[in-house]
Design a binder for these strands. Structure first.
Length: 575
RNA sequence: CGGAGUGUAGCGCAGUCUGGUAGCGCACCUGGUUUGGGACCAGGGGGUCGAAGGUUCGAGUCCUUUCACUCCGACCA
């Protein structure tokens, strides 16, 4: 492609609302253009990159035995009602009616469509397993789209679904296979990523993993171990059981407590409580009140009890009570239920109060907790005397010990670019997608589902690969393999040599961008750096001596080389 | 949805308080000089001032209504 004839327009000005490097450079470099909240046009450069990413994904998926389909974007709402998601999905699901007043939705994901497709054809275990996928535009009417391609409303996603006769087969021939396939895809894209354990939501089970591209600007906090490969989303991270302060430090004595009710006027926080009794917050019990929301507007106040030294992990807590969502509760509402904010504890609660205790409190025979009475706490409370429900609801902290090895855990930021999920029969059951097993018995398909944010990957690649001058595309994702910069097109010798190289390299199958614009050298260099093509050949002043230069975009190093050896040299670099 | 803000040339903005010929930078067109790190000079084209209604001799500016977008908090690939 000749730059002078291309539809490539770079800009010196960044969009005023852009904060992320990926957003700024993709817009400035002429890859994408914003057309509305969370909506983007892909311009030629952006489209080329998008196609490359998509092609790599497709290649690896096909190699793994997956088959590509392309399901309708506009889907009848009927199917969504059948699965129960029409109401539940909420406002993110864009609904509309056609001229006959029939209801449709724009597909935000395609479980329903895919299950519907498969149940019509697959009737026997002999047809299993199968793995179908598509790379398709999705629409989710996000509450707050932002960060450019990172969170659009319309976006390109690869969504895959596998169907199996039983769970073992799903894990072996679906989940694990996809984990390996996804790893290959992200590796080929040149990304530094980490596979982490993820929240599997209300569906339960341990079968959910996310592929995180490590980048400062990531929206997800992930917990990683400094000495093994353990990694988990903060929403799902676990830790080795922490030691009590008196176990860690022999100087520190375990507080002696005899059971009793103590007057603790105005001591409403854990800090104040620990200070009051001169003990580590570890030996206290903290209660966090939340309101759990369920289907059809049902809401219930829940109390979560954790050690004073811990923080509540809301997603874990939400799953612990099978709620759709947890929201904050006002003190007035707690009081109306007979609760005393600031002095709540597991003992002496009003009847029918739902109380969930953290696993770490199991067996605790002597702690300090609110007495459910204004200005009073119990000291030396034995939880074994109470009938409590225990779940894992705490947030892992930096410095906690790894659950797999003895390493230390730390936080890092990641961009979620892939998610694989053991679905089980979550959709096949309500949609009555069944087959006959070896015994002639009807069984619902056991499913897995697998997603890759294709358009988000463009942003993720740039978040991980950029400098203060612009994009630095990886070899496999760059919009062009190589750029040839003719320093001054008015110098016939430069232009001719540039065009000659261009022709020669194109014949060798190299995708070259020839910058033959009537611009000054600095202008063209800046554009090269902004667009981020891996290498450029500069044809300039020294052409008279038969010398050109090769620039490496990542290192910005320039290397002089004889004109006649530049083609083999660049072929070597691009290999 | 809650809070804050912005809509003026393709892009980025000033002008609005205090009503009186619609401006600046970038980009674009013409000519010339320049040419290894985003050049310079001269000339030029381009606007229903987000939309609708109102006040006024006169509205980008004041009033009412409305739409869109952005930013900060709960969802997600």
């Amino acid at each position: 492609m000749k730059f002078s004839q291309s539809f490539i327009y770079t800009s010196k000005e960044a969009p005023s609302d852009a904060v992320l490097p990926s957003h700024i450079y993709l817009v400035r470099g002429g890859f994408i253009q914003s057309v509305g909240a969370g909506l983007y046009n892909f311009l030629p450069l952006g489209k080329k990159v998008l196609d490359k990413v998509r092609a790599i994904a497709k290649e690896e998926l096909d190699k793994a035995g997956c088959q590509e389909v392309d399901l309708a974007f506009v889907t009848p709402s009927e199917l969504w009602r059948e699965s129960g998601r029409f109401e539940k999905y909420g406002k993110e699901l864009l609904r509309f009616k056609d001229r006959k007043n029939a209801e449709f939705v724009l597909g935000p994901t395609h479980e329903e469509m895919m299950v519907n497709l498969v149940r019509q054809y697959v009737k026997s275990y002999k047809q299993l397993p199968i793995n179908l996928y598509q790379i398709k535009t999705k629409f989710r009417d996000e509450i707050r789209p932002r960060f450019g391609l990172m969170r659009g409303r319309e976006f390109l996603m690869k969504d895959g679904y596998s169907f199996h006769k039983d769970e073992a087969d799903m894990i072996e021939n679906g989940f694990k296979k996809m984990e390996a396939t996804y790893s290959r895809i992200f590796k080929r894209l040149g990304l530094d990523f980490r596979i982490v354990e993820a929240d599997s939501g209300a569906i339960g089970g341990s079968g959910s993993k996310e592929f995180m591209v490590l980048a400062e600007s990531g929206e997800d906090t992930i917990v990683v171990c400094d000495s093994c490969d353990y990694g988990a989303n903060i929403e799902a991270a676990t830790r080795a059981t922490p030691k009590a302060p008196h176990e860690l430090d022999s100087e520190y004595e375990k507080p002696e407590m005899t059971f009793g009710k103590f007057l603790t006027p105005d001591i409403k926080t854990i800090e104040a409580l620990a200070e009051f009794f001169k003990i580590d917050p570890y030996y206290t019990l903290k209660v966090v009140a939340k309101k759990a929301l369920y289907d059809d507007g049902v809401a219930k106040v829940v109390l979560f009890g954790i050690r004073g030294s811990d923080q509540l992990q809301e997603v874990k807590a939400c799953n612990a009570v099978d709620a759709n969502e947890l929201i904050d509760v006002e003190d007035e509402e707690l009081e109306s239920l007979g609760l005393t904010p600031g002095f709540m504890g597991p003992k002496g609660l009003p009847e029918n109060t739902l109380f969930i205790a953290d696993n770490l409190l199991k067996g605790e025979s002597s702690t300090i907790a609110g007495a459910n009475e204004k200005d009073y706490h119990y000291v030396g409370l034995n939880l074994n005397d109470l009938d409590l429900v225990y779940k894992d609801i705490v947030e892992v902290k930096e410095g906690d010990s790894c659950p797999k090895c003895s390493g230390k855990l730390k936080y890092t930021k990641g961009i979620e670019v892939g998610h694989i999920f053991q679905l089980g029969t979550r959709y096949s059951e309500p949609l009555k997608a069944e087959f006959l097993d070896e015994n002639g018995k009807s069984q619902p398909f056991v499913m897995g589902t697998y997603g890759i944010g294709i358009s988000r990957l463009l942003a993720a690649i740039i978040e991980q690969n950029h400098d203060e001058k612009g994009c630095i595309w990886t070899k496999t994702t760059a919009p062009f393999d190589l750029e040839i910069i003719v320093s001054n097109i008015k110098k016939e010798q430069e232009l001719e040599a540039g065009e000659q190289l261009y022709k020669e390299l194109k014949e060798k199958g190299v995708d070259v961008l020839l910058d033959d614009r009537k611009e000054r050298f600095g202008f063209k260099m800046s554009d090269f750096e902004l667009i981020g093509i891996p290498y450029a050949i500069i044809v300039g002043k020294k052409i008279g001596d038969g010398v050109v230069e090769i620039v490496n975009r990542r290192t910005l190093e320039k290397e002089e080389i004889a004109l006649e050896s530049v083609v083999p040299k660049i072929m070597e670099y691009l290999a």
